[in-house]
Design a protein around this nucleic acid. Structure first.
Lengths: 324, 324
DNA sequence: GCTATACGTAAGCTCACCTTATGCTTGATG
DNA sequence: CATCAAGCATAAGGTGAGCTTACGTATAGC
């Protein structure tokens, strides 16, 4: 019988690219990982890896084996979730990852709700880059994470992570001065397509999120969709800073509705046909875990006051799990 | 992460009933199994077993965990099957279980076909009681098995074993003397319901398969369905012996069509609306293994000459595997 | 060429897991 | 009721799987 621990190593190798990275993530030495993968390959009777330069890449057989590993590990995750459900009471540590802007906005309200409902739960919050959420979940550093994606920046489908939607909010264009009086009241009246709304600011300097983030990518692609290439002057993640820069005429930027609660004077907000979706992510199969279900419920309640727009649950992975 | 080896032990305990039986089947000591199950229980955080007299029984949580174990092990079996498919060539040992009457009838022709197509394959045939096939497959003592079931004796659904149909053949009533001249030619003309065909022999002594076999259960239930309780005089598994006893007036018996090729004088055969279905069974998820697929194909060819009646493939388990 | 990165192999150590030994409880038997 | 076997659990001890450390080799960047 194939050893699931070795399949887990193979899966991580597929995701992370090098044996050294796998070892680092799982707190082994590279040597140990290399040895275990050798054993797996011998048991399989088929080459699973081949050297490519100074790294290794998976063979086609290795990649199909990874899909089986995904399925097996998802089912094991489901099993532990059900076991946790069979234990009465919800308690113990819950490692929560959050995107930076979720820190002030969603997390405190969610934790307050959670603490009230399940006092025995010990939430541990950690800011984490959205690109590293999947790795963190799989490595067990995180149990659940707040993530988001934007239009124009589709989340890459990842069968190892399940997501439930939490909040869908429109994005606003924040500018210091209005192009004309019609749009000065923060409501677009000249037109409502992205091109019409963004077009007037084609030559303006832009304020976007830092390079490499999804917020940055969203800004660039939205401008491209509107027909121009944004001239980026400032790269700032904190939306309050974006608003402050816009207020002093340093350029135009995108902010989600949630960040518009305290908008400085001199900033004009224009609602865009462009949305940010916040979600709760967790390991595939983990949706039935009572602590995770409780977190999702608490987060929904927390953002409910701010008006959540979508309440159903979707699933990115291909399996047939259901959750309430 | 739950250890799959321990889940395997739990599954076997569910199937076999005692820790001692699990240990015996997997060639461990009972102590080792007991210790591993204790560890599993501790990891699960929920009671999985409880003593019941001098045995242990699974708790509800334990039983649901077994369903997860089934799913995981099936997926692992599918993985090894695909790996075997990735290896070129079909070879190595193939442990074949067969019901006793399959010995002379199906097995030799199948092995001949198999040897011709895949010379590197090393088939190892072993007669096995149909009630022990499932255990043998799961324990790895067998890779594939010929089994059959009868009307009135539905095979208990077993999610750990997949089956593909091989042959559906009518059963015949074998008697020494005809009740009347109409049925003396071996063809029923008085009626065609089971009650009409068997009714005249209600008071005759019967020859059935040995107690505890599916053949025996089929005989008893068929007679009950016809409205009487058979008076069983002889219990013999070998159909040639059944025919020989019927020939000398020792009673009536059931034989499948396959056994009627060499029918002695003085035996009257009456075709019954009652069927025996022969199947090939293997571990759930193993249907894509090239050696098993080759065995199925060879068996189909072997029985093809005898006129197989059903050619599709069905599946008893609930998963979504497909095979050609 | 020099250096850092990445992987593989050899050697040795440690702990998980198995066996043996033993005891307790249960159920069957006379 | 006494006896015995079946079944499970625990304690004690041995050993091999799997880890780390150490080192060698090949590649990519400077």
């Amino acid at each position: 019988m194939l050893d699931v621990r070795r399949l887990h190593l193979l899966r991580e190798l597929d995701r992370r690219g090098t044996i050294a990275a796998v070892a680092e993530a799982l707190t082994f030495t590279a040597s140990a990982v290399s040895q275990q993968l050798s054993v797996l390959e011998r048991e399989a009777g088929v080459p699973l890896l081949e050297r490519s330069g100074r790294r290794v890449v998976l063979t086609p057989a290795g990649r199909t084996l990874v899909t089986h590993a995904d399925a097996v590990l998802e089912r094991l995750e489901l099993a532990v979730s059900e076991l946790a459900g069979a234990r009465e009471g919800i308690g113990g540590p819950l490692r929560i990852g959050t995107f930076p802007s979720g820190g002030p906005a969603i997390v405190p309200a969610t934790l307050a709700e959670l603490a009230q409902r399940h006092p025995a739960l010990e939430p541990m919050v950690q800011e984490i880059d959205s690109t590293r959420v999947s790795d963190g979940l799989r490595a067990g550093e995180l149990d659940v994470a707040l993530v988001h994606d934007y239009d124009f920046v589709p989340a890459s489908p990842d069968t190892t992570v399940d997501q439930v939607p939490l909040l869908e909010e429109p994005m606003y264009l924040a500018t210091g001065t209005a192009i004309d009086t019609d749009s000065a009241r923060g409501t677009a009246t000249r037109g409502d397509t992205l091109a019409e709304l963004l077009g007037p600011w084609a030559t303006t300097p832009w304020i976007t999120a830092r390079d490499g983030t999804t917020g940055h990518a969203m800004a660039v692609r939205a401008c491209q969709a509107a027909g121009f290439q944004p001239r980026i002057r400032h790269q700032v993640n904190d939306f309050r800073t974006v608003l402050a820069l816009a207020a002093i005429g340093q350029g135009a930027g995108f902010v989600p509705e949630m960040a518009t609660a305290r908008t400085p004077e001199n900033v004009v907000l224009t609602r865009l046909p462009l949305f940010r979706r916040s979600k709760v992510a967790f390991r595939a199969g983990g949706g039935t875990h009572p602590a995770i279900a409780a977190f999702v419920a608490a987060a929904r309640t927390a953002v409910g006051a701010r008006g959540r727009t979508s309440s159903g649950s979707t699933k990115t992975s291909a399996s047939s799990l259901k959750r309430e």
